[in-house]
Amino acid sequence: MTLAGDILQITALSLLVAGTSTLVATLIAVPIGTVLGLREVGSARLLRNILFTLYGLPPVLAGLLVFLLLSRAGPLGPLRLLYTPLGMVIAQVVIVTPIILGITMSVVSTVERRVKDTAFVLGADRYQLSITVLREAAAGVLTAIMVGFGRAISEVGAVFIVGGHIEGQTQVLTTTIITDVAQAEYGHAVALGVILLLLAAVIYSLLYRIQERTLP
C-alpha cells in the first residue's frame, strides 16, 4: 500500500469511528440529558452524581471494559466484534455518551425557569416544552457535542485495546502515531499528527460557525 493511500484509509477510518460514536452518543445523550436537566427534583441528583463519575471515566478503562465484553470468551463474544470498527465505536460511545449527557444536563438545567413557564403559558405540551428549552440551550448542547467529538477523535487507549490496531482494518490516526513513534517512523507520525490537527480545526470551526448562528 502506498504511503498516501495508507494515510487516507487511516484518516477515513478515524473520522468514521469518531463521527459514528459522536452521532450515536448524541442521539442517546441529548434526549436523556434534556429530560434529566428539566427535572428539578432531587431524584435526578443521584443520577447526576453517577454521571459525573462516568464523565471522568478514563478512556483506557472503558476500552478494557468493552474488550472484556466483546472478547470471544466474554458475554458478547458471539457477536465477534472485537478488533472491528464497530467494536471501536461501541467503546467510544461508552466514553462519549456521559460527556455529552453531563454537559447537556447541566446546560439544560441552567435554562431559566421562566422559559419553561412562558412556553407552558403559550400552550406547549411536554415535548414542545423540552424542544423549547433545548433550543434555548442550543449553544451549550453544541459545545457538548464538540467536546464529545474532540474526545473521540483524539482518544487512543480504548481504540487500541478494542481495535487491536490491525493494519488496513482498525488502524486510526492516534494508534498509528503511537506505533510509528515506536518504530521511529517520525515523518509518518508527524504527517498523521498534522492531519489530526487539521481535522480538529476544520470540524471545530464548522461547529463554531453553527454555534455563532445560534447565539441570541
Binding site: 431559566e112 421562566r114 422559559v115 413557564d117 412562558t118 412556553a119 403559558v121 423549547t132 433550543r135 434555548e136 442550543a138 445560534t214 447565539l215 441570541p216
Partner: peptide, 10 residues
C-alpha cells in the same frame, strides 16, 4: 398571559 417582565425566546 402577558407578564410584567416578559421572557423572549432566543
Amino acid at each position: 398571559m402577558v407578564a410584567q417582565n416578559p421572557l423572549l425566546f432566543r
